[in-house]
Each structure stands twice: as structure tokens, then as C-alpha cells.
């Protein structure tokens, strides 16, 4: 069983510190939700773990199965088992989803090893059936002209094919209607199991009605300020984030 350990992580963009000492351990089989108001560093956290060059990790550790990933390039982290489902996935004109995924899987093989084409398509189609995705979908260019829902579906399919150890899902629910939200939730629920740890980053409780988390964390001003189970999400829904802010202010006073 895999685990991702984040230890006292500090992340800056330029001179500005965004994540200010965050610790969290995600074990295989667990779904953690991070909630919090806008601008508290939720997306920064996920991009920094994935290795985006704009984000500087100034101190702290991120270990995947006990091994630090911070010295690795983004692609090495991906191949080690970190998957980031993007809030705004990029478009890659002219590259079909099928070819893109094939290249991504090929990149995981040793030099000189060729991916088995028929085996690959068999697996791709099996995953698509599982996620109820139409066969024609993978001949389209990656995210090129896709609706919001199609982009998320594309992210979920990639996640299913790449079988990461840890999936970081960055505001996967933003801008989705209820049908698209169901697609994402069904996909994640299908993949849920001992081999996958999930970090769900979300602004709203709504997604958590469909993907029920094991743990809920509230992030505020670059740190986790409160943790609990799924009921914490309901509490936040009822009372809003101001309640947390007040509690914090009292504690600090």
C-alpha cells in the first residue's frame, strides 16, 4: 500500500509564500478532501507536489513511499505515481487522446521496449467501457474544443489508464453541471481502492455528496487549520468559513 507524506511544506510563488507549513499523510485507499476559501493555497499545494516550475518549495518534505520526490522533475514524479487532475487542462491540438495516452505509457517503459499496440487498445477500451465513455472519444485531439464536462472526462480516463498511486484532484468540480459532476464522481468511485490515495481539492461541499471522503481538512492561509471526517464538510456547508476564521482568531488571541 502506497503513501504520500507531506511534512511541514512551505511553497512560494516568487517572493510570496503561499503554503506555510502544511503536513498531511495520504495512504492508499483513503480519500482526503481539502476545503477552504479562495486564495488559501489549495491549488498551489497540488501544483507544487506535481512539480510545476513556477512554484518553489522553500522547506519541508514530500515523500512517496518513503522516498523524497522534491528533487525529481515533473515527469519523473508522474512516472513515480503522482497524478494531477487539472482544474484547467491544456489543449493539445493534433494529438489524439489515444496517441497521447500511448505516448504517456510508452514513457514509462524502459529504453528499447515498445508498447504492445493491441494490448494497449484492449485495455483502453476496457477502461472506457468501465467509465461509460464512447469509443469515438479517444480519436479526438486532447481537450481541443472540449466542453468543461468533456475535459473532466478526459482527465478521469487518463487517470484510469495511468493507474497512479496518488491522485491530486484540483477543483475538479469547478464549473461543472450536475451531470458532469456525476461523471467525475463515478470515475473516482470506480477507481477507489487500496491501490489509490486521493486528495480532493474543492471549494464546495457539493462534490463530497458524490465522493464521500474519509477525511476532511480545512485549509486557511496556507495551513490545515482543522481536520475531521465527512461531517466537518456538512458543518462548513451550514456555517460557512467565517466560523473557522473566528475560531482561529480566538485561538491566536
Amino acid at each position: 500500500m502506497s503513501q504520500l507524506e507531506i511534512k511541514n511544506l512551505h511553497v512560494s510563488i516568487g517572493d510570496k509564500e503561499i503554503v506555510k507549513g502544511l503536513s498531511l499523510t495520504i495512504k492508499g485507499g483513503e480519500v482526503h478532501a481539502i476545503m477552504g476559501p479562495n486564495g488559501t493555497g489549495k491549488s498551489t499545494l497540488s501544483k507544487a507536489i506535481a512539480g510545476h516550475p513556477d512554484y518553489t518549495i522553500t522547506s519541508g518534505e514530500v515523500l512517496l513511499d518513503g522516498v523524497s520526490i522534491l528533487e525529481k522533475e515533473a515527469d519523473e514524479r508522474a512516472r513515480a505515481g503522482i497524478f494531477l487532475a487539472f482544474q484547467y487542462p491544456s489543449e493539445i491540438p493534433g494529438v489524439s487522446i489515444a496517441n497521447f495516452l500511448r505516448a504517456a505509457l510508452q514513457a514509462r517503459l524502459a529504453d528499447g521496449e515498445e508498447i504492445d499496440a493491441s494490448g494497449y487498445y484492449k485495455r483502453l477500451y476496457a477502461k472506457m467501457d468501465l467509465l461509460k465513455i464512447d469509443r469515438k472519444f479517444t480519436s479526438r485531439a486532447v481537450n481541443d474544443g472540449f466542453s468543461g464536462g468533456e475535459k473532466k472526462r478526459c482527465e478521469i480516463l487518463q487517470m484510469a489508464m495511468l493507474e497512479p498511486k496518488v491522485a491530486l484532484m484540483d477543483e475538479t468540480d469547478s464549473g461543472l453541471d450536475i451531470d458532469a459532476l456525476r461523471i467525475v464522481a463515478d470515475g473516482v468511485n470506480t477507481m477507489r481502492g487500496p491501490n489509490l490515495g486521493v486528495l480532493l481539492i474543492t471549494h464546495y461541499q457539493r462534490l463530497l455528496d458524490y465522493i464521500v471522503p474519509d477525511y476532511v481538512h480545512v485549509m486557511y492561509d496556507g495551513r490545515i487549520v482543522k481536520s475531521g471526517d465527512k461531517n466537518l464538510a456538512h458543518e462548513l456547508e451550514a456555517k460557512g468559513y467565517d466560523w473557522i476564521k473566528k475560531e482561529l482568531a480566538t485561538a491566536q488571541a
Binding site: A50, G51, H52, P53, E73, A74, D75, A78, R79, F83, L84, F86, P89, S90, E91, I92, P93, G94, V95, F100, L101, A103, A104, L105, A107, R108, A141, Q158, L162
Partner: peptide
Amino acid sequence: MIFYMQQRGLTEGQAMSLAVNG
């Protein structure tokens, strides 16, 4: 775009090639 492709496991060079071929 390059980061997106790298996040799927492609090296920077492979990502560039794929973008150009596309």
C-alpha cells in the same frame, strides 16, 4: 501545455515533439 504533458510522464523533449507533431 508542456507541464500538462510532463505531468502525464513525458519528458520535456518528448512533450515538445508531441506538440510539434500534433
